[in-house]
């Protein structure tokens, strides 16, 4: 069994890196903007579908990722519009876009699963299961680039305004910033990253599937939380972004281990949900433990 686990590691790391890109997108909405955006469950598939369709049409696989990003951005803009202009609550705005996108994704792909059979492609995909080690290297480059862009953006005037909007929108408006625009911008940025992750993922696994994004938000949250719990919120912003990607890798390593231990792939959704529920409730338990400790100490004194 140990051998099986070791053999599964490279694949798990590669998957973790790719989902890490998506987790960075989730971080932008969930942590920076304080907006629980459920669009991602579908926008990741939109990114994958766009990339797959364009590759099958003969476009350069690397270039298709640009369109994956743009498609993802468009989905974020729709959620932002629903929330800021039509005043629909955040979660519901995301759910509506997510639901609507199911039909859109089907239209893009024409069927529920598009295979990128490498033998029939004119050019090899950017990354693929056929060469996991190389895929890991290329994914690291993508992750580094994304972290670099986010680090730069959130240091700019505009990025600062987006961060402040998630922190205290009241103040930001008083300082002359249109907070609605900042929310839309954050959602566009976030879903652009999710779209990119979708495109990469479709190329890596060799297909785009209508269900590929189901539960994506949970994986994203798990990565963000695992990263924060293990690596802590310290040092600079780039460190925090890096810890999220590491969180995603750890998540996929755990998944690989439990699969080797005999869990069915269909059990994974429940497993993920339980992990995230536990992780989200961690601060509560931490507080209770602290209080308990203090009470014990006080009693002794």
């Amino acid at each position: 069994m140990l051998g099986g686990i070791l053999a599964a590691m490279p694949g798990a790391v590669a998957q973790g890196l790719l989902w890490g890109v998506m987790a960075l997108g989730v971080y932008v909405t969930f942590k920076v903007l304080d907006y629980a955006d459920l669009t991602v469950d579908s926008s990741i598939c939109t990114g994958g579908a766009v990339s797959a369709v364009l590759i099958l049409k003969g476009m350069n696989p690397l270039l298709t990722l640009v369109f994956s990003i743009l498609a993802g951005m468009a989905t974020g803009a729709i959620t932002g519009f629903l929330h800021t202009k039509l005043k629909i609550p955040p979660i519901l705005s995301g759910i509506l876009t997510q639901l609507g996108l199911y039909s859109v994704n089907m239209r893009i792909m024409g069927k529920s699963n598009l295979s990128l059979n490498s033998n029939k492609l004119s050019q090899p995909t950017v990354i693929s299961l056929g060469n996991v080690n190389q895929s890991i290297l290329i994914s690291v480059v993508f992750v580094a680039a994304v972290i670099g862009v986010l680090y730069w953006f959130f240091g700019t005037e505009l990025g600062s305004a987006v961060r402040a909007t998630g922190n205290n929108s009241h103040m930001v408006r008083a300082l002359g910033v249109n907070t609605n625009s900042m929310i839309i911008l954050g959602l566009i940025l976030s879903n652009g990253l999710v779209g990119l992750a979708g495109g990469l993922l479709a190329q890596f696994q060799g297909y785009a599937d209508i269900n590929m994004g189901r539960g994506a938000i949970v994986i994203g949250l798990a990565s963000v939380i695992i990263g924060e719990v293990i690596f802590g919120v310290r040092f600079n912003f780039a460190y925090q972004l890096g810890s999220i990607v590491c969180g995603a890798i750890i998540y996929y390593i755990i998944i690989a281990v439990v699969l080797q231990c005999g869990l069915q792939t269909t059990d994974l959704k429940l497993f993920s949900a339980v992990i995230v529920a536990l992780a989200l409730s961690l601060p509560l338990f931490k507080n209770k433990m602290l209080k308990h400790k203090k009470a014990v100490v006080a009693e002794k004194e």
Partner: peptide
């Protein structure tokens, strides 16, 4: 904004009424 630094808060206030771009 509690999660941001003192200087970051001041920098945002210093730009009140100005269009915010991609400069630092």
């Amino acid at each position: 904004a509690g999660n941001m630094g003192i200087e970051e808060n001041l920098a945002m206030a210093y730009r009140r009424g100005k269009t915010r771009g991609l400069g630092w």
